[in-house]
C-alpha cells in the first residue's frame, strides 16, 4: 500500500496524512499497559487477613451447634437466654470502652429502646414462629437453612471492596436461616431464644469484631485463634466428623488459599489503555 511513507504518521483524524485507512503504524498499541494495579501479596499477611473468613465460619458453626443442642433438649431455652444476655451486656460494655473515634449521635437510651422493641416483637411473634412451617418437611427446612447460611458466608462484608458484598443480604439470609430453624424447635421460649441468639451472632457479633479490630489491630490474630479453637473443641462434643471437617476447611482457608492466590498472581493479565472509562478521583 504506502510503499515508502515519507512523513511520520501521527495519531490524528483531522488531517489526511496520505496513508491508507487500514495502515498500521509501528506505534500501534503503544499506549497499552498491562497489570497497572496488580498488588504484590505477602503470604503471612494474607494468612492473617483470612482470619475474618474463619471467624464468620465459626459463627455459623456455633449457631448450628446451638440449634442442635436445643433440638436434642441438651440445652434449655432459659440457659441459652441467660448466656446470651450476659454475653450481649459484656459485648456492649466492651464496645463502649473501645477507644473509637465515632461521630454518631446514638445515645444509650436509643440502644435500650431498640433492644426493647426487638425483644418485645420477637417475644410476641414467637408463638406464630414456632408453628410457622409445620406443613413443610424438615428436610426442606434443613436444605433451605443450608442454602441461607452459605449465602450468609458468601455475601458477608469481610472488608473487601467488591460488587457481591452485601451486608444486608448476608444478615437477612442469616436471620432467615434462624427463623427456619427456630420453627423446628419445641416451645415458644426456644424459638424466641433462637432468634435472639441469631441476631446476636449475625448482627451484633460481626460489628463488635470489626470495632475491636479497628481499635486494637493486634488483637485480630489472638481473637481468630481463640474463637476457632473454641468452636472446634465444642464441635468435637457433638460430632467428631464435623469437627475434623471444620479443621480441614479452616486450614484450607488460612494456609492453602493464600498460597493459591500468590501462585495464581503471575497469570494475571489485565490490560489498560486510553479506551478505559476514566475513574473520577476527586
Amino acid at each position: 500500500m504506502a510503499a515508502q511513507p515519507r512523513k511520520t504518521w501521527k495519531k490524528i483524524l483531522y488531517e489526511n496524512q496520505g496513508f491508507p485507512d487500514h495502515y498500521v503504524d509501528e506505534s500501534f498499541l503503544d499506549e497499552l499497559k498491562k497489570n497497572l494495579y496488580t498488588r504484590e501479596y505477602e503470604y503471612w499477611n494474607i494468612v492473617k487477613e483470612s482470619g475474618v473468613v474463619t471467624q464468620q465460619l465459626c459463627s455459623v458453626s456455633i449457631f448450628v451447634m446451638v440449634f442442635i443442642l436445643m433440638d436434642v433438649k441438651l440445652l434449655a431455652a432459659e440457659t441459652l437466654g441467660y448466656i446470651s444476655v450476659c454475653l450481649t451486656v459484656l459485648g456492649y460494655i466492651v464496645n463502649c470502652c473501645l477507644p473509637l473515634k465515632s461521630d454518631k449521635t446514638r445515645t444509650y437510651l436509643d440502644d435500650m429502646k431498640t433492644v426493647c422493641i426487638f425483644a418485645g416483637f420477637s417475644y410476641c411473634l414467637s408463638p406464630v414462629l414456632v408453628s410457622l412451617t409445620e406443613t413443610i418437611a424438615t428436610d426442606t427446612i434443613y436444605a433451605m437453612t443450608t442454602v441461607m447460611l452459605i449465602a450468609n458466608l458468601c455475601f458477608h462484608d469481610y472488608g473487601a471492596d467488591a460488587e457481591m458484598v452485601s451486608g444486608v443480604l448476608s444478615l437477612n439470609s442469616g436471620l432467615f436461616a434462624s427463623v427456619c430453624l427456630a420453627s423446628r424447635l419445641h416451645t415458644t421460649q426456644h424459638s424466641f431464644v433462637a432468634v435472639t441468639f441469631a441476631v446476636q451472632i449475625f448482627a451484633l457479633w460481626p460489628a463488635l469484631r470489626r470495632n475491636i479490630r479497628q481499635a486494637i489491630p493486634s488483637s485480630h490474630v489472638t481473637m481468630t485463634v481463640t474463637f476457632a479453637l473454641m468452636t472446634v473443641v465444642s464441635l468435637t462434643f457433638i460430632s467428631m466428623t464435623a469437627a475434623i471437617l471444620l479443621i480441614i476447611i479452616i486450614v484450607f482457608i488460612t494456609f492453602v488459599c493464600p498460597y493459591w492466590l500468590i501462585t495464581l498472581q503471575p497469570y494475571k493479565n489485565n490490560i489498560h489503555g486510553p479506551w478505559d472509562e476514566a475513574v473520577i478521583t476527586d
Binding site: 500501534f28 498499541l29 497499552l32 490490560i271
Partner: peptide, 15 residues
Amino acid sequence: HAICVSHTSKENTVL
C-alpha cells in the same frame, strides 16, 4: 473487514 471511527477505537477493537 472492520471499520472504526478513531485510532483508539481501532486499537480497542483489535484487542
